[in-house]
Design a protein around this nucleic acid. Structure first.
Lengths: 180, 180
DNA sequence: GACAGAATTGAGCGCTTGCTCAATCTTGTG
DNA sequence: CACAAGATTGAGCAAGCGCTCAATTCTGTC
């Protein structure tokens, strides 16, 4: 009745998410996951195929992030404030790698579609809560999301002298332009 | 005196660029390049190391694209019009993959820095040509570039119902907002 | 024609990857 | 306790990667 404290499959799912966070999508391997989980190599393939497990763990990570709702106007400020917070770096990287992988990995593409849809819907809803200032919430949400992705890419590449603070300022500036 | 019609190193550089265009940065291999160039496998390593050759070929591809200058106001329209043209798809993908690789590949990071710097400088200059409408060309160029990157990422992932035409419309909308 | 040096070749090394599979260990049931 | 069924193991396979190196071919010079 009482399940084992260590259920193999759950152990592996958890370890996969941990490994993804630490080394990213590209460097993550099945061996790293099984070692981390403290189980044999064969067990992973008994429950999963690597592409599926990878997509599963990736989506689980972003599911955590989506977290609870906030009051509409606080939600927008919270979004702006956390978009380029230091803790978010892990997610920019996982996001970028996922966009990349989605081209060749159907499982990742599906996961990305779901997460992206949810995030866009949420931002759209938050923007729709101030209709007098934002006549087309869907379009604005898409532009702001795209801008955020693009700025995150610039930050990750580390190739410009862009800092997270500057990125946030740019996002706020675009936000101000969009909301008139 | 007259150089050989087929100089091994040049042949390999050219083949590398072709392969990158066709299969992208991640799928490209030394074997694909040497086969394409019609030379033996060993020759590539006689002249190059793979990370360097890859970065070299990548930068060469974008050097072609930078092309000749246009009249200042035409330049902005040309930029908007070609940003999401069908032919540009290859470049979005190479760009995205490069951003990804830059984290672990110093040669790619250096190449990306150079190309990104040139592109930003060019757009900044074009925007500076209309100072009455664009008070801060550098910041605007960065935001527009980031937006373009983000929209390209969304298109590549193929996960939203975004079309290239819509992406261009979004870019034009942001452009209009920026330039008042 | 002979010869030195450069260009070029491809078999193969060492490594990593995801995955298979026969064997072993654990667990719940009668 | 016995026994079937599921959980778990790890050696090893097949494939791919960048790269090495001894051997071969080509090329220009005297």
């Amino acid at each position: 009745m009482d399940k084992r404290a260590s259920d193999g499959a759950a152990l592996i799912r958890q370890a996969a998410a941990d490994v993804l966070r630490e080394v990213g999508l590209h460097a993550a391997t099945t061996r790293a996951v099984t070692d981390r989980a403290g189980v044999g190599r064969g067990l992973l393939n008994h429950y999963f195929r690597w592409p599926e497990l990878r997509a599963l763990a990736w989506e689980a990570i972003f599911a955590e992030v989506e977290g609870p709702e906030a009051a509409p106007d606080e939600a927008l400020e919270a979004w702006l404030a956390t978009a380029f917070a230091p803790e978010a770096r892990t997610y920019w990287r996982l996001w970028l790698e996922a966009t990349d992988l989605a081209a060749s990995d159907p499982a990742m593409a599906a996961a990305l579609t779901r997460v992206q849809g949810r995030m866009l819907a949420r931002l759209t809803a938050d923007l729709a809560a101030v209709p007098e200032r934002c006549p087309d919430p869907k379009a604005t949400a898409l532009r702001l999301t795209a801008l955020q992705d693009g700025l995150a890419g610039l930050l990750l590449a580390g190739t410009t002298d862009l800092t997270p603070e500057m990125a946030e300022a740019h996002l706020r500036r675009a936000f101000a332009l969009e909301l008139g």
